[in-house]
Design a protein around this nucleic acid. Structure first.
Lengths: 133, 133
DNA sequence: CAGTATCCTCATTGATACTG
DNA sequence: CAGTATCAATGAGGATACTG
């Protein structure tokens, strides 16, 4: 470590390089990207674009998701500041989830990707190669 | 099964519902979406937007990806018709990867998502909740 | 209703070594 | 160079039961 010169400019360059570059393993942006593009993350963001939803609504609308995965996914998105969790202090519990401003921004872009795929599914499927055994 | 009337309209409705709806578990579009938003899939698509690249180039540029995962990811994207693989019959081997027209379309949308995250990283990080132990 | 806790499985991933 | 093959480890994910 001592024979490695600690040149300020290099540190600064490295920081800049790492700040917003998903191609760099250590860059935080890659973590954020993964939370957004995670298996259930995409679908939750996509669904919340339509507006506020309760836990059980999301659970029913996103076919195949388990309670555990949904709750976990929502927590990650909440921790990243994309989803807002609003718990009404009533019995039985009533919790609503909605997008934050940043959440709106990413969800908008996620939606464009999703919608393109949905609309072009036939074209995509016809291009797919057969995977025999 | 016999007491379940096979009404054509219902079948047709079901088909339409399943055709391009990622929220439905059985819908092929969800598989396609996952291949695109997979851990390394996003990064490969993002990188290939810049143009054709060789295997080893991608391997070096996408920090942290293993040979196995890169090759696997490229195969999936190729099978879905998003990536074109061009192998030049020379020794040593020379293989290039580029986007297909459909690949360009998805990659464009992936890029918008990625770039937004990169540009807004600071805002996102400042919103993040602390996850102590 | 909206979760959490626990246990368990198997798919994804990585390290290493080898090949046309 | 551009992979494949093999094995080992991690963690994503599911089933079930329980709780404020």
């Amino acid at each position: 470590m001592k024979n490695n010169e600690n040149v300020p400019e290099i540190d600064s360059l490295l920081d800049k390089y790492k700040r917003g570059n998903v191609l760099v393993k250590e860059c935080p942006s890659r973590r954020v990207l993964q939370s957004v593009t995670s298996r259930w993350g995409v679908l939750v963001l996509f669904r919340l674009r339509k507006g506020t939803h309760r836990f059980s609504e999301l659970r029913r609308q996103i076919t195949g998701v388990s309670e555990k995965m949904l709750s976990q996914t929502l927590q990650v998105l909440e921790n990243n500041g994309f989803v807002l969790r609003i718990a009404h202090p009533v019995i039985p519990p009533h919790v609503e989830y909605q997008l934050t401003p940043n959440g709106q921004e990413v969800a908008m872009r996620v939606e464009e990707l999703v919608v393109w795929i949905e609309l072009n599914l036939e074209s995509i499927l016809s291009d797919q190669k057969e995977l025999n055994d």
